[in-house]
């Protein structure tokens, strides 16, 4: 089913993307609707009794022993941050 402009705004917010500020707002809607129309082909498929699979392989999670393997990497990691101070990553004020 086609995606409304409202829905696009909603999912864009969920995904933290701006769409209203770009001039191609319409083309996003048109593109998404073409993709959704293509994807809609699967909705008609009879999958009664079929178990959904998340992976092709049937294996179980391997467990890790509880031993510290990672030492302090703060300085090298914080060096990647766009803004850091006093050992912290900085973001515009977080309001509760």
């Amino acid at each position: 089913m086609p995606i409304s402009q409202e829905t696009i705004k909603y999912i864009a917010h969920l995904a933290r993307l701006n769409i209203e500020n770009t001039r191609d707002g319409d083309s996003i809607q048109a593109d998404l609707n073409r993709i959704v129309a293509m994807v809609d082909q699967i909705t008609a498929t009879n999958t009664k009794g079929v178990d959904p699979i998340a992976h092709s392989l049937e294996a179980a999670e391997r467990l890790r022993t509880d031993v510290v393997t990672e030492t302090d990497q703060r300085d090298s990691l914080l060096a990647l941050a766009p803004k850091a101070e006093a050992g912290l990553f900085l973001v515009p004020i977080v309001l509760e």
Binding site: R64, V67, V68, E70, R74, L77
Partner: peptide
């Protein structure tokens, strides 16, 4: 636990900020 749920970083309380945060 001594380490995190999905990484081998330590979990001690009260460490200096981000010294127990690995990649």
């Amino acid at each position: 636990t001594k380490t995190k749920l999905f990484s081998g970083a330590a979990t001690e309380y009260g460490a200096a900020p981000n010294v127990q945060a690995c990649g």
